Computed example of a mutant assay.
Amino acid sequence: MKSPCVEICSFDGRTGWCRACGRTKQECRSWKKARPHQQQKIASDLPRRLAKLTATRSD
């Protein structure tokens, strides 16, 4: 699976998620070594995380 990274790393201090792709620092570091099912599990949660980050910014 292709990395969701968009090369604009900026991590939210409250959630620990990257504001650009939604992953944690640990998920970013381990992405290439992660098994496909682990990558899929992370990727499936990213839309929810990014939506939460967007909602938090507009509050």
Rank of each mutant, 00 (worst) to 15 (best):
S58L: 15
D59Q: 10
I42N: 00
P4A: 14
H37F: 12
R48N: 05
L53A: 04
C5W: 11
K25E: 05
L46V: 02
A51I: 07
G13E: 15
Q26A: 07
H37Q: 15
C21H: 02
L53T: 08
Q40K: 09
R57C: 03
Q39G: 08
F11S: 00
K33G: 09
R35D: 11
G22E: 00
P36K: 13
Q40E: 09
F11A: 04
E27V: 02
R19P: 02
R48I: 11
R19L: 04
G13A: 13
Q40R: 11
L53N: 04
R14N: 07
A20N: 00
C5F: 10
D12F: 15
T54V: 04
V6Q: 11
S10M: 07
S3R: 14
A51C: 13
K33C: 01
P47T: 02
R29K: 07
P4S: 12
C5A: 12
E7K: 10
R19I: 10
T24P: 04
I8G: 04
L46A: 07
Q26R: 10
C5I: 10
A51L: 12
T54R: 12
K52L: 14
Q40H: 11
C28T: 02
S30E: 10
A51R: 13
Q26N: 06
C21L: 06
G16K: 03
K52P: 01
K33A: 15
K52N: 08
R57G: 02
E7T: 07
T15A: 13
R57F: 10
C21Q: 07
T15E: 06
W31D: 03
K41A: 08
Q39I: 06
A51K: 10
C18F: 01
M1R: 12
C5E: 08
R35Y: 03
L50S: 05
P4N: 07
F11C: 06
K52V: 12
P36M: 15
S44Y: 03
Q39H: 04
D59R: 15
K2V: 04
V6A: 12
P47L: 05
S30F: 03
Q26F: 05
A55E: 12
K25Q: 01
D12Q: 03
C21D: 02
R35I: 05
E7G: 01
G13C: 13
V6N: 14
I8N: 15
K41G: 06
W17K: 05
P36F: 08
I42Q: 00
R57D: 06
R14K: 11
S10N: 14
T24W: 01
G13W: 05
C9E: 10
W31H: 06
K32N: 14
T15M: 01
K33Y: 09
D12P: 05
G13K: 10
Q40P: 00
T54N: 11
R57K: 08
S3F: 04
G13S: 13
R19M: 01
R14Q: 13
T56D: 03
S30G: 06
A20R: 00
F11P: 00
S10F: 11
P47S: 06
C18E: 01
V6S: 09
C21T: 02
A55W: 03
K2H: 02
R14T: 15
R35N: 13
R57W: 07
E7V: 07
H37I: 14
M1L: 11
K32H: 10
